[in-house]
Computed example of a mutant assay.
Amino acid sequence: MNWRKSTYSGGGEGNTCVEIAALTTHIVVRDSKAPARGTLSVPAPSFTRFIEYLKRHS
């Protein structure tokens, strides 16, 4: 998987955020501080709506 971190990641190592990986039908999310602990898989359309909501309400 190709994991990406936000350009807004803070901290010297940039490890105080989540990472995402885009799959064919899902977006996978993990904690960058503990990547081996597990992932959350979300349908891509739901993740897109969630991000659009955050952009409108921040």
Rank of each mutant, 00 (worst) to 15 (best):
N2K: 15
N2W: 02
N2T: 14
R4T: 11
R4I: 07
R4N: 03
S6N: 04
S6I: 07
S6W: 02
T7G: 10
T7I: 05
T7P: 01
Y8W: 11
Y8Q: 11
S9V: 02
G11Q: 09
G12P: 07
G12L: 10
G12Y: 08
G12A: 13
E13G: 09
G14H: 07
G14D: 08
G14I: 05
T16D: 12
T16W: 11
V18W: 06
V18Q: 03
E19Y: 05
I20F: 05
I20V: 14
I20A: 00
A22K: 02
L23G: 12
T24Q: 14
T24K: 12
T24G: 08
T24Y: 09
T25W: 01
I27H: 02
I27P: 08
V28A: 15
V29C: 02
R30K: 09
R30D: 05
S32T: 01
K33T: 08
K33D: 10
A34H: 13
A34W: 01
P35Y: 00
P35E: 04
P35A: 00
P35F: 00
A36M: 09
A36P: 01
R37A: 14
R37Q: 11
T39V: 15
T39I: 15
L40E: 03
L40F: 02
S41L: 01
V42F: 00
V42A: 05
P43Y: 08
P43E: 11
P45F: 03
P45V: 02
S46R: 14
F47H: 00
F47I: 04
F47Q: 01
F47C: 02
T48S: 12
T48M: 06
T48E: 15
F50E: 07
F50H: 12
I51F: 11
E52A: 15
Y53T: 14
Y53L: 10
Y53M: 07
Y53Q: 10
Y53A: 15
L54I: 14
L54Y: 03
R56W: 07
R56Q: 14
H57Y: 13
S58C: 13
